[in-house]
Amino acid sequence: MVKELFQLFVFPGVLFLFVFGLSAEFIDRKLCARLQNRVGPPWFQPLADFIKLLAKEEVVPEEADVSVFKLMPVLALSASITAFLYIPLSAQSAIYSFNGDVIVVLYLLTMPTLAYFLGGWYSRSVYAMIGAVRSLNQLFAYEVPFFLAILASALLANTWSLSGMAAFYSAHPGYWLFNLLGFAVALLSLLGKLEKVPFDIPEAETEIVAGVFTEYGARFLAFLRMSMNVEMAVGSSLLAAVFLPFGLRLGLAGGFILYLVKVFFIIALISLARTAVARLRLDQMINLCWKFLAPLAFAQVLLNLIIKGVIAR
């Protein structure tokens, strides 16, 4: 019982994820700043922002649906935290796992976007509503290649469990190299999920202020931002577990350090992508996802099916 509570609330649960999410935000912001020739924030800036937002006065728009408006940030945060419990970090198995948990994780990672949509829609501000519609539109574009890329990797491992995949790839070292195409597709889709440039269309500052987040302030905004950070940490962990499953037998300390290196490498790739390009338009983004990312993900599925056939023989 004590062990379970510790796992849920301290490690690798809520507390660890808070720290992890804040570090992910810091690394993203600092790296982005250095790439843009800026100084960037000090290490405690994300925490300071979080505390400051908690202390601010709460304002709920008069027209907004109060309960939905207040519920959505919490829902978004808890969904992304829950997803983390099924992802194997340093060892070959996660705290909880069952056959099919990869679907659950993908589903839980979709929840925050739906929560942003509902929160934005029910805050009844034009900017938030347009942002909400855009984030849903975008969801339909990046979700298919994202799912396909991850499922392709699962297909090769012949299991629907993330822990099972970790076990398969450590039993067959080098097999993860087959999935590099899927990794690229999943990374680009993750940019869409995290609403980062070039896919930050739902919160395009110069068009719709802050999109879904326009009407949010105080602790609601703090939770929304935290859920974004946790989503970034969890999304990167998922990618690390699915596409970079090597060195899982290094023991507790070594494995954990390697895991952090993998995740921060993925976050660095995200920062690099968002400093190197301009924001796309919604129609261009959807075109890109359906015309390039989805076929590439299909190609990965096909490749893995063929490889599987060869292995079986």
Partner: peptide, 10 residues
């Protein structure tokens, strides 16, 4: 305006 902040900074 097109979300390419790196160009702005440079």
């Amino acid at each position: 305006e097109v979300g390419f902040d790196t160009l702005l900074m440079y």
